Computed example of a mutant assay.
Amino acid sequence: MRTFRIPSALHDVFGERQSAASLTLIALAMPVAVLAALPAFLTVEPWRAVLAGLLVADIAAGAIANFTRSTNDHYAASALRRTVFLVVHVHIFVVALLLDLPIIPALVAWALTIAAATAVVLLKATGLQRPVAGMGVVVVLGATAMTPEATMVLLFMTALFAIKVVLAFAIDHSADTGP
């Protein structure tokens, strides 16, 4: 399979090398996610829709890219990189602000996603990363869905965000992470 060397400025997104197939899937995920959230984009000013669209595209791209060996290996090589990644991922909250989506379910989704991802990262040596990550996503989605103001767009964004951060990113896919 043909691979491409990734410019160093994009290593945090793609790692050092990516296959053509992976890059294609990552590129396809972005417009699918934006289209799924389109109803919310149509109700706000264009500048807010554009910024939110970029963040939604980033979440979708990461939901695919973080499963790839190259991106996984990039973050597995540095605990500091993993920590910084988790700290800066406030995307779902910012998207909610930009699209006038309910803030409380967005905060619930963000806080539980970061907590679940942190727990998964800390369990690296235990072999429990995968089942704990699965449970973390169940908790994130369940708690967000039970929040009275949750909307379909926000639930979709929460699912993408939880997949990106908990399942795709927090698990070290190159290690023995499950029974």
Rank of each mutant, 00 (worst) to 15 (best):
V121M: 09
A49T: 09
H89S: 09
I103Y: 13
G53I: 02
F93P: 06
I92Q: 05
A109R: 00
A60T: 11
R82H: 06
L97E: 14
I92Y: 04
A133Y: 05
R82S: 10
M135T: 13
V121D: 10
F93I: 13
D58V: 08
L97Q: 14
T83V: 11
H91M: 00
V95R: 10
R48P: 04
R69W: 12
A49E: 06
V137S: 02
L98N: 05
G127T: 04
T71Y: 12
L107F: 08
T126W: 01
H91T: 00
A57G: 08
L128K: 13
V88M: 15
H74K: 07
V108E: 06
F67E: 09
V84D: 03
L97G: 15
L107E: 02
A116Y: 01
F85W: 14
V138A: 14
A125G: 14
F93V: 15
A116E: 01
V94T: 13
L99T: 08
G136Q: 03
V90A: 14
P105H: 02
A65E: 03
V50K: 04
P105R: 02
T71F: 12
G53D: 00
N72W: 02
N66W: 06
S78H: 09
A133I: 05
A65M: 04
A76L: 05
G136S: 06
A106C: 11
I64R: 06
P105N: 02
R48T: 08
